[in-house]
Design a protein around this nucleic acid. Structure first.
Length: 510
RNA sequence: GCGGUUGUGGUCUAGUGGUUAGGACGGUAGCUUCCCAAGCUACCUACCCGGGUUCGAAUCCCGGCAACCGCACCA
């Protein structure tokens, strides 16, 4: 599959189109909007739900031992203290009052404190700055200061008791770690155990940017897989020959930033990536390529180096998509190998021993493989990559199972064909599909509208449908992507369309 | 957060102190139309918010909000 046709749209054009069609718009819009907050309209809400369901079908379909839970969005303070978010989800900054440049505190204090500033209070950092870094590296002014620490979490009063605090979760992953002990019982005490959460997360970003790319309230779909690092076998043969578009940290360190298609087999053998990691990375790659339909040439799996990734991540590949509207490759998901960091932290924080006994009698703290997926970012990517200008028309070539509305039904002429068309629309709604009925203007206009909304099929009732003759009882089905038409008996409509709406499932080893 | 630019119907835009705030596309209703935004008629919708200057502000000034670009940030 090639890339998009026609002229690429920039961010403004794409956003204007999405606003106009009611896909999304600024939150609290009549008050001028709120930075980093957007609302999804009818098309956006339906599309988002489809994306989430496609994600569920794929990732929960990987194993019978992967489960979805629906936990609370609020985390008590003790949780975020244990996870490290209270302490570390801040950016110690140093700002120059002369030229307004900002620096990371650990950069500016490199010579005075090579071990970094993690864990130091802002007062301690301010003191170090006063003593060791009197000049701004850019303008030379002696006006460096440490602004108040800025935690990226939204905190709130919790309950009536003064001083009790909770936080809106900055990531859904924490809920899965918190649920592990309970799920260990529910899941019949076996590893691997996958716990998925699809839901909102909240970050008080300093500078939200680029519409859906950096939000203050956003939706994540995350799967945390708890496993025994000494024995986890995956059906690697299923993906052994998949070519992954890798950008390896090792090559980047040598100055090579380009994509090297590499088989899963080679990734395991030559790069020493564990099989369980390579397998899930390959399955994630298939999801973006085959389920979301991103052109293969626009995807890359970008390995984060040791200094780029969080210290507890042993291995991290970001899934990046090349988007015209955002000017290049942007992260839309990731695969992290987090070791036993999360359960160890919560063991220490809660006092609850989260180690488990394996079938062969070993006592271990399970390790975690994390698959994250940014729902909003991918919704944007689906617009960027699939919403194309095709000559005069604008067509949203979404995979049919992702389309917010499944079918449109038109009477070719409102009066003559309306009644029959309406009964057909009702029949199709009976299939559980969202059906748009439209009898306004002429049929060409209606086709244009459904093209823009991404509705894959338009069913049209005409004279032949109604009048006696060989074609009585037949309708035309018009396909969005190539405008071709088929004529078929209305009784066969549902059977004809149904396969297009099935979410792809991952292949399972035989 | 800092600096710059910008803010007119749903969308794109004209308007630089006094306009019934104009157009295009769009939407709605009707007519017409037997398959891809045609045509005819009528209608619909706007000066981001709040102050100030002025006889008079969409227009000038200040503040706020928001967007875009750059800087910084993105555990």
């Amino acid at each position: 599959m090639g890339g998009r046709e026609g002229r690429p749209m920039n961010s403004d054009e794409l956003y204007a189109l999405l606003r106009r069609r009611g896909v999304l718009w600024p939150s609290s819009e009549i008050y001028g909007g709120a930075q980093g907050l957007y609302d999804y309209g009818p098309l956006g809400a339906a599309l988002k739900r489809r994306i989430e369901d496609a994600w569920r079908a794929w990732f929960l379909g990987l194993s019978d031992d992967y489960y979805e839970i629906d936990p609370a969005e609020l985390l008590p303070e003790a949780v975020v203290r244990a996870s490290g978010h209270l302490e570390n989800f801040t950016d110690p900054e140093v700002v120059c009052d002369g030229c307004h440049r900002a620096y990371r505190a650990d950069t500016i204090l490199e010579s005075a404190r090579p071990e970094g500033v993690d864990g130091l209070s802002s007062e301690a950092i301010a003191d170090l700055v006063r003593r060791f870094a009197p000049r701004c590296p850019a303008c030379g002014a002696e006006r460096l200061r440490v602004p108040r620490p800025f935690n990226l979490m939204f905190g709130l009063e919790f309950g009536a008791a003064a001083g009790d605090r909770a936080y809106l979760r900055p990531e859904t992953a924490q809920n899965s770690y918190l649920a592990f002990a309970r799920m260990w019982e529910v899941g019949r005490k076996a590893l691997p155990l996958g716990i998925a959460v699809v839901g909102k997360a909240f970050r008080n970003e300093i500078a939200p940017r680029q519409i859906l790319y950096r939000l203050r309230a956003f939706t994540q779909a995350e799967l945390q897989i708890f496993f025994d690092p000494e024995r986890w076998t995956v059906p690697i043969d299923v993906v052994r020959h998949d070519a992954l578009p890798l950008v390896l940290a090792r090559r980047r360190a040598a100055g090579d930033e380009s994509i090297h298609p590499t088989t899963v087999e080679a990734l395991v053998r030559e790069e020493n990536v564990p099989e369980f990691f390579a397998y899930h990375l390959a399955m994630a790659h298939r999801f973006y390529r085959d389920v979301l339909g991103y052109p293969a040439g626009r995807l890359r799996l970008f390995e984060k180096s040791e200094t780029e990734r969080a210290f507890y991540n042993r291995l991290q590949f970001d899934v990046e998509v090349n988007l015209d509207s955002l000017g290049g490759f942007r992260e839309v998901g990731a695969v992290h190998y987090r070791g036993d960091y999360d359960l160890s932290r919560h063991s220490a924080g809660s006092g609850r021993d989260l180690a488990v006994t394996t079938g062969d009698g070993r006592r271990i703290v399970p390790h975690v493989l994390e698959l994250t997926f940014g729902v909003d970012r991918n919704l944007w990517a689906l617009a960027d990559l699939h919403l194309v200008r095709d000559g005069e028309r604008t067509v949203w070539k979404l995979p049919p199972y992702l389309a917010p509305l499944q079918v449109a039904v038109f009477p070719l002429l409102k009066k003559e064909h309306g009644p029959v068309a309406r009964t057909i629309a009702e029949e199709l709604r009976g299939e559980g599909w969202a059906v748009e009925y439209d009898d306004a203007g002429n049929v060409g206009r209606r086709y244009a509208r459904v093209d823009e909304a991404g509705i894959p099929f338009a069913v049209t009732v005409d004279r032949e449908t109604i009048e006696p003759g060989p074609a009585q009882g037949t309708v035309t089905v018009r396909l969005r992507d190539d405008r071709s038409q088929e004529r078929l008996a209305r009784a066969r409509l549902a059977a004809r369309l149904r396969p297009a709406f099935v979410f792809p499932h991952p292949p399972r080893a035989g």
